[in-house]
Simulated scan of single mutants.
Amino acid sequence: MYRRKLLAGVGSGLGTLVAGCLGNIPTADGTSNDNDETEDETVITGTKFETNVNVPAEATDSPSVSYEREAGEIYVQGQYSIGSACYEATYDDATYDAEEQELQFRVSRKHDGSDECEEIDQLITYRATITVDGPFPDAVVATESGTGWETTREQFE
């Protein structure tokens, strides 16, 4: 009689213990099944970068930033000089500073390795779409660093 109660109690306790442990087993992609994860983290899920596109006139002096909060998209566009023909337009991956609640994005230039370059001032127009998941950033800092530096800080409402 006492043996049945003991076995029932041990079985119940083991079931609870195993269920608690299984909730923390990593999945195939290395994430955890832990139900205690918060939904309050802003994550950059993608960046699309295009060059030689039409941009509005106000985006030719310094980067222009706009957004569509419902879609989780931030748009950065502008025009900057990359210098001689030996350079090509490039960008750094967008980063998010959780402490400042600020997204940072920078376009720049990369040398193509050529020894002889035609000395022309190439102006590059660009448009970037940065997709975020989670709470929307409070601000975006967009920087153009070609042959000069232009920075725009857009505070969102």
Rank of each mutant, 00 (worst) to 15 (best):
R106I: 10
Y91G: 05
E58K: 01
E68A: 13
P137M: 01
M1C: 09
V10Y: 08
D29C: 08
I120P: 00
F105T: 07
E73M: 08
A89M: 12
I120N: 07
T38M: 06
G146K: 01
L6A: 11
D40C: 05
E73Y: 05
V132F: 07
E73D: 12
S84D: 09
G30D: 12
Y80N: 00
D36Y: 14
G78I: 05
V107A: 03
L6I: 15
Y96N: 03
A57R: 12
N52Q: 13
L6Q: 06
E58I: 00
E73W: 07
T95A: 05
E150P: 00
Y91W: 03
E41F: 12
W149E: 02
E99A: 14
A71E: 14
T147D: 00
I120T: 15
A57N: 14
I74F: 05
K110E: 15
L103M: 14
D138L: 04
E116A: 12
A28Q: 11
G11M: 12
V10W: 08
L17I: 12
G20N: 14
R106M: 13
T147H: 03
K48R: 14
D121V: 08
R106G: 04
T152E: 07
P135C: 02
P137H: 10
V10R: 11
Q155H: 04
D61V: 02
E157R: 00
G78A: 12
E41G: 00
G23V: 12
L103D: 04
C86A: 07
G13K: 11
Q101V: 08
Q79E: 12
W149D: 04
M1A: 11
A94L: 10
K110L: 10
D121E: 15
S114Y: 06
E100Q: 15
V18H: 10
E50R: 03
G148K: 13
I130H: 09
Y67G: 01
G23D: 11
E144G: 09
I120D: 08
V132G: 00
L123G: 01
R69H: 08
Y87N: 08
S12L: 15
A28Y: 06
E119M: 06
N33G: 14
F49G: 13
D29V: 12
C86I: 05
N33W: 04
Q155C: 01
Q122T: 07
G13Y: 09
T51L: 09
A71M: 11
G15H: 04
P63V: 02
